[in-house]
Amino acid sequence: MNAAPTAVYSPRSLATALAVLADRAPVTVLAGGTDLMVELRTGRTQVASVLDLWGVEELRFVRAEAGGVRIGALTTITELRRQPSLGAWPLLAACAADFAAEQIRNRATVGGSLGTASPAADLGPVLWALDAVVRLRSRDGVRDLPIPAFLLGYRRTARRADELIESVWLPGRLPTERGAFVKVGTRDAQSIAKVVVALVASRDAGSGQVTAVRAAAGSVAERTVELASLQELVGRRPDAAALLAVSRVAASRDCAPIDDVRSSAVYRRHALQRVVCDMLTSTLEVPLEDG
């Protein structure tokens, strides 16, 4: 237990970092340390060697690209909240505002959150709902994976041992879209999600038909999951009863919550259903039925 790693590499360039990954495997990647430092201290995770990315400035950026934005892996949660260039993706700031506490937000990174792939991560559902694409880079080149293809299971991703999460690309948003982010935590601040949902939806101004809806949830399955049942709203003009019905279907079919130390499966399903129904109602501007 608790043995110190044999080697810690702290490269200053991406190329060196990729070389370490290629030549020194197995290497555990360290970003802001908010997860790994706890794992190491408690002895839950043992590592042979560590690649410390903190000094790789090339991974710290936010820039416009291909009609969207590309966010470097070392971008912190605080930067998600503060970067004016991310103003077109308000879900990011909404998520960041509720993310852990200030001390953690200053250290936790986008890449670290993705790489850890906790099922309770707040950022997973947001990136999923925003159709994010993860860019993995190795010495051999890059791979671009949409979030659903990247997040594979409980703390498991599609990243190969020789790859780094380099960045995430988010497509630009349409003016008709509305988004919502809701986290049901264990307390009002600095909490871990019991249920977390991000949702983006739009409807045609003329016909009133739903043109698109994308929602994903965390803490309700072994990984972030899409609420795929909501797709049946597309092309319809749902009323409040329809939203209630579809949210019940989503809460039944699209998740597989468990009882754990933070909450119960029954509660998670219930909260998910109520939260999703509410989010659909507000984003699609469906009038509430009396009662």
């Binding site: 506490a101 264990t186 307390r187 009002d188 601040a189 600095q190 909490s191 130390v261 933070r262």
Partner: peptide
């Protein structure tokens, strides 16, 4: 997991 109230709570 053994939580107590924060300043917000």
């Amino acid at each position: 997991t053994c939580i107590i109230p924060t300043a917000v709570d």
